[in-house]
């Protein structure tokens, strides 16, 4: 439901790395989204497209790397992918776990087409 404001935040961050003119050369905006980040990828893609429409960034595509929800268990020592949010160790059932991935919501990088100018 808040994917629109997340799309806007992503564009704001990108704007700090390339000038308005250079934004026309941005081909890909790479983001990392954890399985438990509370973001619906389809919805974010839709909102991103809506937000860049008629802006210098309009040729950019949002590329989402999704990260599984994984917990590390202090009891059995294993790091295992778990159902998003379930903190119990899938291997031994212990509740003594730490989340090691799955909550990410990051702008990773942008791919810029050098052929038509660009560069930072």
């Amino acid at each position: 439901m808040h994917e629109l404001s997340i799309a806007q935040s992503i564009i704001e961050i990108v704007g700090q790395y390339v000038t308005r003119a250079e934004q026309e050369q941005v081909r890909r905006v790479n983001v990392r989204i954890g399985a438990m980040a509370g973001v619906v990828p389809d919805s974010l893609e839709f909102c991103f497209a809506a937000v860049i429409h008629h802006t210098p960034l309009q040729d950019a595509v949002l590329v989402m790397e999704t990260v599984p929800f994984c917990v590390r268990c202090h009891a059995c020592g294993q790091t295992t992918e778990s159902e998003p949010g379930i903190a119990l160790c899938p291997a031994c059932g212990s509740a003594d776990t730490d989340i090691v991935s799955g909550t990410e919501l990051q702008v990773v990088s942008i791919d810029v087409d050098e052929a038509s100018g660009g560069g930072a």
Binding site: V108, S109, I110, V112, E114, G118
Partner: peptide
């Protein structure tokens, strides 16, 4: 194509 790392 050049990549600008952001990681934020």
């Amino acid at each position: 194509m050049s990549v600008i790392t952001i990681e934020r």
